[in-house]
Design a protein around this nucleic acid. Structure first.
Lengths: 119, 119
DNA sequence: TTGACATATAAGCATATTTTTATATAATGA
DNA sequence: TCATTATATAAAAATATGCTTATATGTCAA
């Protein structure tokens, strides 16, 4: 039998606060589709690049997302091992998919795909 | 087949922000056990009565809780008809029960029970 | 009607959050 | 090395949030 692990209020509240921002909530919803790099977020949101970086930093500091540098790009992905991931996932599942935003990005040729050419 | 109804990001984010405050999150967790009146909250939280009232007002303005006056007391209850109630419930189910706090309240004789004596 | 109790509202203050602008760091390719 | 692109950080400004004190409103009971 599978039980839902309990997480104390002190841990839960900060995560909800983090996702209580429309930009960050949309970011995590996008990351549910696939990992994204910073420039993709700046393309999607009508917002300055530093603002995007600062939102991502909050998500990273909380451990909600993981970052990986690939060449000059930095990619962000959901941290599915996070204690709060089950909660985060259950929140995201109740929201409409953000896939279209990514589809449009790719249609406009702004999808960053990493190919290591150094080998 | 039962599907989870989707709620847009614009609606979801403000509710998460609301529950992202430790006091309000604890309040809703308490209300999951039973309805409470304002003076019970002021007993439980180490906080002034106006502060409690202001948190409750935010929850009420968002439709998350409903208020009912009974005599000189005002009782608050979770609004289980709210569009976001399923999400709220799923968040609360992942947190430890706040029942002990209410038990202690009752042990100390601070549980307000409404009996209509006007009939 | 008056006093006591419960709750709400208003105003002020301190702190936190978000955004912008400017600048720094990092990687790439000519 | 140098210019370009991508990203991060710092500082400052604007705004929002939460708390306290003071006061107002509402209800009841004497």
């Amino acid at each position: 039998m599978k039980t839902i692990p309990e997480v104390p209020i002190e841990t839960t509240a900060p995560v909800l606060k983090l996702l209580g921002d429309k930009t960050r909530l949309t970011m995590t919803a996008l990351l549910l589709e696939r990992e994204c790099c910073v420039c993709e977020f700046t393309d999607i949101f009508n917002m300055s690049q530093p603002s995007i970086s600062q939102h991502l930093r909050k998500l990273r500091d909380a451990g909600v997302v993981l970052e990986t540098r690939r060449g000059q790009w930095v990619f962000y992905a959901l941290n599915t091992d996070h204690d709060m991931y089950p909660l985060i996932e259950s929140i995201l599942y109740r929201m409409p998919s953000q896939k279209e935003k990514l589809d449009e990005l790719e249609k406009n040729g702004n999808h960053v795909v990493w190919c290591d050419t150094s080998r």
